[in-house]
Nucleic acid binder design. Structure first.
Length: 425
RNA sequence: GGAGAAGUGGCAGAGUGGUCGAAUGCACUGGUCUUGAAAACCAGCGUACGGAAACGUACCAGGGGUUCGAAUCCCUUCUUCUCCGCCA
């Protein structure tokens, strides 16, 4: 959520920045500012009247204490009239505030200066690439054939017990999942992230805090009986840990990491995009989250990107890093780097991580602030997060890229976790 | 799930209809004192919105109500605690 003061002070700047997202925000912002003006006017009027009513009530109390009951009774009538007008104003103000909030919440985050204008994934810039595509032996196959051949994943039974997109990992497939989770958590912890195990269901307030609600409820599984949502990413519970809190400036940065299953409804896509592990309704991910001082958040973003890159290099996966263009960037982000790994048998890039700086966009919804040592006042913190890493596509790439006619080799760094160095029959 | 009790500022804890945004203690910040620190003393010390400011308004778990006036009374939701039940 953008800050109203920003809009009031620099509407033109916001409009031109949002244009990089291919959004013409002018009508929305004009309407919002007009609404804001109206709200402030009604608020001022309401508060003046409240002030009057308060003074009157005090005088009445005074009169009663002095035993001047008759005079007091007379003033009560006056107070009644004010009260009537006040309740009209109050409901008007309430409605205006609601509208203002709804419109404000509908505006996406302002892209960072380094973000280029662009429409879609085509316009993203490749900022780094590492390794090279492995040359596979004759007879290589995509990962969904490998998982079947070596009995790593039982997609069919997943369909039986739940539905499409809910795989059942078995044997070395299950062990590989556990190994990756453990490896990522260990590496993140070594890099200074505090390990956290959050709940996997969240309430509405949490969904609002990180930007999933309102508007994106269709992407989450919703348990209507208890009005809870299954988390689409650990970002939601972990970032919300600090909702409505004012942290000490000294405590920044706050770095946390969490493993969680992620649940996404992702309705409406079929074909090769969703084949095998490419896109699932339930998948595992290890997330990193940072809360940082505004002056250091971009430094921190670079650090997070470097950290994620180091994980991929350790796994020996050919990857590239993209800086997303305005049009491809998420609603809440100011700057996003996507990581893609090369899937050698599918011969395509698969997104495995997305690392973003949200600046104050989430913090403003979360009311997540730090107390400045300079002015001793609370200021909005910056929040950042990234995947480190999402498992399914990593598994897809590992299986495909490391396959040979007699099996699949496990990267060196994972062997202490898997307890085996090859997958074969 | 059943019965009961309770939710006040960072923490502890007063406050049962009027001058309470809220005593007091601790913590914290600044200062005096000190070679330095501690102690002591003095001062400050919630948040949001509106306002150039003075200041105003709101907030005592959330929402609603009674009243001229609510932290205080009523309704409701949530949470916590105790006992019982169930249970990994």
């Amino acid at each position: 959520m953008l800050q109203l003061t920003t809009l009031r002070q620099n509407a033109e700047g916001v409009i031109s920045a949002l244009a990089k997202r291919q959004v013409d925000a002018r009508p929305a912002i004009d309407a919002l500012l007009a609404l804001n003006e109206q709200r402030r006017q009604v608020q001022a009027e309401t508060e003046n009247l409240q002030s009057e009513a308060n003074k009157l009530a005090k005088s009445i109390g005074q009169l009663f204490r002095e035993g001047k009951a008759a005079e007091a009774e007379g003033m009560k009538a006056q107070s009644g009239a004010i009260k009537e007008r006040l309740s009209e104003l109050a409901s008007e103000l309430h409605a205006l505030e609601g509208k203002e909030h709804d419109q404000l919440v509908a505006l996406p985050n302002i892209p960072h200066v380094s973000v280029v204008a662009g429409k879609s994934a085509e316009d993203n810039e490749i900022v780094e690439s590492w390794g090279q595509a492995p040359v596979l032996a004759e007879g290589h196959v995509p990962h969904w054939e490998l998982t079947e051949r070596y009995k790593l994943i039982d997609f069919e039974r997943g369909v039986k017990i739940t539905g499409a997109g809910f795989p059942v990992y078995t044997g070395k497939g299950a062990r590989l999942q556990r190994a990756l989770i453990q490896f990522f958590l260990d590496r993140n912890t070594e890099a200074g992230y505090l390990e956290v195990q959050p709940p996997y269901f969240i309430n509405e307030a949490s969904g609002f805090g990180t930007g999933q609600l309102p508007d994106k409820e269709g992407q989450m599984y919703h348990m209507t009986t208890d009005n809870l949502y299954a988390i689409p990413t650990a970002e939601v519970p972990v970032t919300n840990l600090l909702r409505d809190e004012i942290v000490a400036e000294n405590d920044l940065p706050i770095k946390m990491t969490a493993y969680s299953p992620c649940f996404r409804r992702e309705a409406g896509s079929y074909g090769k995009d969703v084949r095998g592990l490419n896109r699932l309704h339930q998948f595992d991910k290890v997330e990193i989250v940072c809360v940082e001082h505004p002056s250091k958040s971009y430094e921190r973003l670079e650090e997070m990107v470097a950290h994620v890159a180091s994980l991929l290099r350790d796994l020996g996966l050919h990857y590239r890093i993209l800086r997303l263009c305005g049009g491809d960037m998420g609603f809440t982000s100011a700057l996003t780097y996507d990581f893609e790994v090369w899937s050698a048998a599918q011969e395509r890039w698969l997104e495995v991580s997305s690392v973003s700086n949200f600046e104050t966009f989430q913090a403003n919804r979360l009311m997540l602030r730090y107390r400045s040592q300079e002015d001793h006042k609370p200021h909005l913190a910056h929040t950042l997060n990234g995947s480190a890493l999402a498992l399914p596509r990593i598994v897809a790439a590992l299986l495909e890229n490391n396959q040979s006619p007699d099996g699949i080799s496990i990267p060196e760094v994972l062997r202490p976790y898997t307890g085996f160095d090859r997958i074969n029959e």
